[in-house]
Write a protein that binds this DNA or RNA. Structure first.
Lengths: 166, 166
DNA sequence: CGGATATTGTTATAATATAACGTAACATTA
DNA sequence: TAATGTTACGTTATATTATAACAATATCCG
């Protein structure tokens, strides 16, 4: 069903936040080193903040967080870092939210689909081959060459639904 | 494959633009009448402009077109009309473009997927049950309740690809 | 008509993103 | 290590998309 070994689920309420961030940063460092990409202080910090937020986060939110840390930052600062991180495959942009979220498996070429909870704001990244192939089939029929897929499903995650059932 | 009787294709270069607009407007009028929705002068004109552009068009583009016609219009004017038209199912919003496009089958409850050509800017609306069911399957596995799907595929349409092959 | 509701006008501003240009850091190689 | 080219970052200004808040007008219905 999924081409990924460890498709992200909605994280459990008690999952280890810190380990999760640390792990993502370590992977990113290793990946950039291997690829000759320059994960500078700033870029690293932006990536870390994205993971620390642990859900899709807006550019101006990140900007404010950087500013609060005493770093001089204007919009271009953050957008350039976001561009780098996206091009490097370390984060994804969620179009329907204008927000950015860490990628669970940098380096792996993958189509990403997001399931976004409207209550808690968390997003689960999937890579469903069936969706991809259904799109490919339509594209073929249209004679359309696919460049980029934007697949974002909004709704309510299991956790929030159970808690809202009064 | 498609649940629609007449899934939109990329319109042929020689298709009859005027008839196409007229038809959409007539359908909209009939639909609104039947549903008791008020397709006012303004809303009708906005819908007409969207169809006349015949590809996804931005709110501020529409605004400018209205202004050029001598109508006093500020952003809220256009956004309110767009909201009405979306809620009535007469147009769709294409998130990845921040643009609006006419719906081919108002009234029909349907999931829409868009194939958007990066060259000519045209968008083809599809309603592929396979995509929808693949998403439903993932959602079920996650315990996720789907509210809204955003499925937009960017690429190059057949027509533009042929013309770019020098 | 007259009151309620829906629509539109108007002004201001929020939220997201980029252009343009200058400066600093870094990397390479003579 | 100094010269040079390249990449990243700082800074200012502005573009683009969208909404808040409130006033004025049009429409509906008893």
């Amino acid at each position: 069903m999924s081409r990924l070994k460890h498709p992200k689920q909605f994280p459990a309420a008690d999952h280890d936040h810190k380990t999760c961030i640390t792990h993502a940063l370590q992977e990113a460092e290793a990946y950039c080193k291997q690829q000759g990409l320059r994960l500078t202080e700033l870029r690293r910090r932006v990536l870390e903040l994205i993971w620390a937020n642990h859900q899709p986060v807006g550019a101006y939110d990140l900007l404010e967080q950087l500013t609060r840390e005493g770093r001089k930052a204007a919009p271009p600062t953050i957008y350039r870092s976001l561009d780098f991180l996206m091009q490097s495959g370390l984060i994804h942009r969620i179009t329907s939210l204008n927000a950015y979220v860490g990628c669970n498996h940098p380096g792996l070429d993958h189509a990403a689909q997001f399931f976004i909870c409207e209550y808690c704001g968390q997003a689960a990244e999937m890579d469903d081959a069936q969706i991809v192939s259904a799109i490919a089939k339509d594209a073929k029929r249209l004679g359309f060459t696919v460049e980029k897929r934007t697949i974002e499903v909004a709704g309510i995650c299991a956790h929030c639904r159970h808690h809202s059932e009064t």
